[in-house]
Each structure stands twice: as C-alpha cells, then as structure tokens.
Amino acid sequence: MTRTSFADAGTSAETEASPATAPTSFGRARSRAVARQIVRKAGSALVVLWGAATVAFFAQLALPGDRATVILNIRAGQAQLRTPAELAPIRAAFGLERPLIVQYLDYLRGLITGDFGNSYQQFRPVTAIIGEQLGATIALSLTAILFAWLLMVVWVTLTAGRGPRLTAFGSLTDVVVAGLPAYWLGILLLLVFALGLRWFPVLGGSGPEGLVLPALTLAIPLAGFMSQSTRAEFERALEQPFVLTARMRGMGDWGVRISHVLRHAALPAITLSGWALGATISGAVIVESIFSRPGIGSVLVAAVNAQDLPVVTGIVTLVAVFYVVVNLLVDVVHTLVDPRLVQS
C-alpha cells in the first residue's frame, strides 16, 4: 500500500532481492560497485583540485597593471613606475617573461610537487610561510570540529522530538547560534571566561588551555548549523516504524535515541564535515585575530592587506585540497555508518 507507482520501476526491488538469493555474487557485485565508486569519486576530486588551482592561478593575473611592477611595488610598499632594469630581476625570478600557458603548466607542476610559488613580499616560498603556521590552525580547526560534534550531539539528543515547546526552543536556538558572528562570540567568551572569570589565558597561549576559547568560538556556530539538519533527521527518524519496533521490544527512550536514532541523524552532519573543515579554517582567520593566536589566519590577513597574492592563493588552494581530501574521508565514514550506500 505504501508503494509508489513511480519508484516501482522494478530496478530497486530487483537489485535488492537478488543478493538474497545469491549472497556470493552479491559480494562480487558489491566490491565492483565500491571500486567504481572510488574511481568516480577520485576522478571528481581531481577535477575539483584542478579547477581550484586554475582559479588560483588566474586570480594572480587579475591584479591590474604589469605584474612585475605590481610585485615590485608590493615589495617596496609604495606605488611608482619602475625602470626595465629594476623589473628584469623580478621578471626572471617569477618567470614572467615566458608565455602564459607555460607559466600555467609550470604552476600546476609546482602544485603537484608541493611548490606554491614565492611570496611577492617576503621572497620566500609560500610553502615555507604557510608550513610554519599551519599546525596551529589545523589544531584549532580539528578541536573546533570535535567540540561542535560534542555540543551538537548532546544538544540534539536532549531536545529533539520532546514535544512542541522544547522542540521549537531547540530549533530556534540552533538558528540563532548558527548566525552568531565569530568575532562577537569570541569577544564575549574572551570577556567572560578570560578577563572576567580568568579561567583561560587572555592572549594566545600555546598550551591546550589556550585552545579552548578559540575552538569554542568556532564550534558553537558550527554546532548550531549542524544541529539544524541533524535535528530534522533526528525527528524524522524518531517517527520511523523501526523506532516503534525498538520501543515495543522494551527499549527505553534514551536507548532508542542513542543506539538507533542518533546513527541515522548523524548522517547529514557527517556529510557536512568537509564543508565544516573549510568553514573552521576560514573562521580561524577571525578567531586568531581576536585571540592573537599564531596561524595561517594572521598570515592570510597580512597577505590580503599587502596584496601578496601567491600567499593568498596558496592558502586558498590548500584549503581546497583539505576540502577534497576530507570529503573523500567523509564518503568512507558515511558508508561505514550507512552501509546501504554501497548498494544503491
């Protein structure tokens, strides 16, 4: 009775039924499907990376004026016309005299070998500049994502599907919290917990206690954002017949929520994780500025101010690489949590 005529097209039911009759051939079909999926995902990941690199390269050309002059002016910190004699070494150093297509291919080749080019301002490889600061930002991002998951899981499990009032309150909180600007939240946390209560250091602090407030600043809006989709899925799952079946077996409300519903509800948030990493890294730009933490955020702000494009595009490309890699991991985690995906 619940069948829909549209979906009835035979395909779903048949592919579903066949493994029941032949488990061995199913195993083979399954591994073939997995292999196919991996190839397809990796292919599209490569396309995304190539696209990101291309955008980054052409952004470097977008500065108005002669590139060598621009570079020299950025380095000198003042804008003026330069003589060919002054420009020649810059042209040679950055290979600007070569045709554009050669520069482009060279740039791509560089990226593959981990060479992001040289900073306009500092005469140093971008990789070195980013490398010095990357650790702190990654630590911050990962801590923030961990906090966000903890906050989100606890909050949603406590408030989802608990009657209209609590549900409305819960989802309103999600939305409000998700919209909090990082700078404001960071300042508030700083004022209350560092300056007021003195629980955490005010400035930086390389130890783990210095990581708590910055990570929370990033985690709270992220938790609100993830809660929105998790809550919707949580409430949908709570209405599913299998939840009723579990209750009818004598399972309590908490048991059902934690061992059945949460797994279903976590799926959309898992999908968001790749995006979340990017969001926390870009949020780190603001948070590092508020808490005076070292990290690629401060490097980035300085580079944007100085129009030091290789550094900016280097960071942007790196984040795109992270995004792609994390998304591949997310796919793996997703199939672990929801094994049905391999089939369909």
Partner: peptide
C-alpha cells in the same frame, strides 16, 4: 508482548 509492524524494510533499523 511482542509487536510486529508492517514491512520490515521500515520496521527494522535499516542500518
């Protein structure tokens, strides 16, 4: 008391 619902595709946890 045991309880049997409609189609187990939705009445058993699909994961």
């Amino acid at each position: 008391i045991g309880f049997v619902l409609q189609d187990a595709l939705v009445s058993l946890d699909p994961l």
